[in-house]
């Protein structure tokens, strides 16, 4: 995987004074993928990103981006990344077009291609009709897009975006997501966020960081499964059936995979909550049993296995301490 990874982080540590902001983390981001970098505020996301973008030197450990070391080959790294810092700071007195041209020149884009690059990123980020506007008059959403446009200017191999959808309205968030999905494949994207739905919708892999350490990583699906496994008592299968409550309860309780059945509501339509080994086979068995007995199956859903619950579970200091004990 190493040869095919655009971001390789090994035992990276950053301490501020005595406080370890990032503590011995390792991960890889494969080329062309979108990876979500998830964590509560103050978990070390921004510090990690600042080390990857050569803004801060690591205290120990190594990181390489696009095949170059962030410390010893900083210029090579910097010319191959596009970076959107938190809050997308810009010069408010400049016009959008001017600013993009200025950034392009700073990033070494040749004079002949500069105009075309500016137009192309402006179009990609829906800035076309705002090109002549002073940045100070733009809304937060437009400024955020300008930041993304800036990051895309040099057509970078690796894109690092720190909370790209902060301050955007729901429509803009959806548009940004669409844009990120378009970018995958052409660029390797590391996306930091604390909005979970964003990660579930856009990212192929998720890295969860908390208190400076990596708490979990995998695809969103894997993490959900992991959540179900860790928290088997918490995960429940809720079944809604039209039929005699007691008989339904006995029929479902008799299944070997089911450990416990609880009646949530009684009546002509009853709702039961099951716990145990809740896999696909069980759900199929339940469906065929219910239908076979002549009852009607109205709904079947699992609860307690969302990414959000998993996130809360592993980033909550209380649970972590319990696990350590």
């Amino acid at each position: 995987m190493s040869s095919n990874a655009d971001i390789v982080v090994k035992n990276l540590t950053k301490t501020y004074g005595r406080f370890p902001a990032v503590n011995n983390i390792s991960f890889e981001v494969p080329r062309g993928s979108i990876v979500g970098f998830l964590g509560p505020n103050g978990a070390g996301k921004t510090t990690t990103i600042r080390m990857l973008t050569c803004f801060l030197p690591p205290t120990s450990g190594t990181a390489s981006v696009a095949g170059f070391d962030v410390f010893s080959q900083s210029m090579e790294v910097r010319s191959r990344i596009g970076y959107l810092p938190e809050n997308a700071p810009t010069y408010t007195e400049m016009r959008v077009q001017e600013y993009l041209a200025y950034r392009g020149r700073l990033r070494g884009i040749s004079r002949s291609t500069l105009k075309q690059r500016v137009e192309s990123v402006a179009e990609k980020c829906w800035l076309g009709e705002r090109l002549r506007w002073p940045i100070g008059t733009l809304s937060k959403g437009y400024r955020q897009r300008l930041g993304i446009a800036d990051a895309l200017l040099n057509n970078p191999q690796v894109l690092i975006l720190d909370e790209p959808t902060v301050g955007l309205d729901p429509t803009q968030i959806r548009e940004t997501r669409k844009m990120l999905a378009d970018l995958a494949g052409q660029h390797t994207v590391l996306l930091s966020t604390h909005i979970l739905s964003e990660v579930e919708l856009t990212c192929q892999r998720v890295i969860i960081i908390g208190r400076g350490q990596i708490l979990a990583q995998g695809t969103p699906e894997e993490l959900k499964q992991e959540s179900a496994r860790r928290n088997s008592s918490g995960a429940k299968l809720v079944v809604e059936v039209r039929g005699p409550t007691q008989q339904v309860k006995m029929a479902l309780g008799a299944m070997p995979a089911v450990e416990n059945v609880e009646v949530l509501s009684d009546g002509p339509v009853c709702t039961l909550s099951l716990s145990g080994k809740l896999d696909g086979a069980l759900r199929e068995l339940i469906a065929s049993t219910v239908v076979g007995r002549g009852w009607a199956l109205r709904e079947m859903r699992t609860t307690g296995t969302s990414l959000e619950e998993f996130f809360v579970q592993i980033t909550d200091p209380g649970t972590a301490m319990n696990q350590a004990a």
């Binding site: 210029m75 910097r78 990344i81 970076y83 810092p85 700071p89 010069y91 700073l106 990033r107």
Partner: peptide
Amino acid sequence: RSGRIETLRTSPIS
């Protein structure tokens, strides 16, 4: 103060 130092110093410029 504005945080622009970050965009500046992560650009390929010494």
